[in-house]
Write a protein that binds this DNA or RNA. Structure first.
Length: 202
DNA sequence: CATCCGATTTCCT
DNA sequence: GGAAATCGGATGG
């Protein structure tokens, strides 16, 4: 996808990413679920809400790069940076269906059913082989990670919207920020889980 | 389906 | 110094 595709508000880009193909070195996933994150000061659920930090720096940069962050001590999650430079918008790649490179994908996900290979943001990156090394890379420059338009268009009637998963803080119940988009009826869409703040283990 | 908890970074206090 | 984290796998009902 050209950079102009990403250089628009995340809320516009997110639903259009549904059905798109995401490829990294031999494995391709068809996206079935994404979430938009609006910029600094505008979206309490965004990592960039409180402004620039070393971690969120790439979100403030040029659209069409990947923002990859580490979560819960063992997982990597990937976002596509959107919007104009300086606005820190992004779309979290939450789930998809593996459509190519099944053998390699299977070898990375022993014990999981095929529909679960990329069902969840950390599973998706793990199946594709995306991690810290891909933070900040340009996906519009012929590099190892790229997006392609849907081979067949997604029926707009199948696109659903709802609260984001696992987002806490103000508006964390999701009602104020229904920024999650998915393709209805897809078995690869991750299960909704409200944000939970695990109790201190003392 | 519900609950429990791992293992580590990041950023706030 | 420490809470919270854009989660997932295991286990028990």
């Amino acid at each position: 996808m050209p950079r102009s595709f990403f250089a628009r508000p995340a809320l516009v880009v997110a639903p259009e990413l549904l059905g798109c193909l995401l490829t990294h070195e031999g494995v391709t996933v068809r996206l079935t679920e994404v979430e938009a994150y609006a910029g600094e000061g505008a979206d309490p659920g965004s990592h960039a809400f409180r402004g620039r930090t070393p971690r969120t720096e790439v979100m403030f940069g040029e659209a069409g790069h990947l923002y990859v962050y580490f979560s819960y001590g063992m997982h990597w999650c990937a976002n596509a940076v959107c919007g104009d430079e300086g606005v820190a918008q992004a779309v979290l790649l939450r789930a998809g269906e593996v459509v190519a490179g099944n053998e390699l994908a299977a070898s990375r996900r022993p014990g999981l059913r095929e529909r679960d290979w990329a069902r969840g943001p950390a599973r998706l990156t793990r199946t594709l082989g995306i991690d810290r090394a891909h933070d900040g890379i340009d996906v519009c420059a012929g590099g190892s990670v790229s997006f392609a338009a849907p081979p067949e268009s997604v029926d707009p009637a199948r696109v659903r919207t709802g609260p984001r998963v696992g987002v806490s803080g103000p508006g964390g119940d999701g009602t104020a920020y229904p920024y999650r988009f998915w393709i209805d009826g897809e078995p690869t869409v991750s299960a909704y889980r409200p944000a939970v703040t695990r109790r201190r283990t003392r």
